[in-house]
Amino acid sequence: MWNNFKNGFIKENPVFGLYLGMCSTLALSTSLNNAIGMGLCVTLVLICSNVLISLIRKITPDEVRIPVYIVIIATLVSIVEMFVHAFMPELYTSLGVFLSLIVVNCIILGRAEAFASKNGPLASAVDGLGMGLGYTFALTMISLVREFLANMSITFYNPFNAEQILFSFGIEALEPFKISLFSSSVGAFLTFACFAALFAVIRKHMNKKQEAK
């Protein structure tokens, strides 16, 4: 079970390894707040959907499996969306349409089909947590690079109260060297490509090590 959890980060990272959920990764990696907010929303939905689907896996008729999954996921996403709208209005505006697009995020349906429909609720919950955090991790990495290069500073505010800044880091001397390109879509694609290549190298290295053992 621990291995399942660990796999979600590097070897089977849902974003860099499996290329799942790329749309939201590219779009929401502009700032650290968006990245962490979105990552946690996805993790929450993923854990809940995995547990629910795992619980009903024995009573779901095989023919209508996919419709059942979609109904469950859509319901969960609606709940999360309303929750974020009510308590974190700032985050809700900056995530925008991508919050409701969690429904069609490949990670969730993919895990439901590949893991939760065959394993018990506890294992599915752990798998959901691992995959969700792997997604959050990927999103955070990209957003750190992009936010720093675009502003030469990184800020993180309290999602429940946008005026309260929790964490801020910046190098003033670098201020004139901002690359605003990285906040646009071009930067998103390029940063993502470099990270994907980096992870490919790491994975290859890890596989070699394993073979050597």
Partner: peptide, 9 residues
Amino acid sequence: NPIALVVAG
């Protein structure tokens, strides 16, 4: 995929 993403950029 990485080079495809660079092209997309």
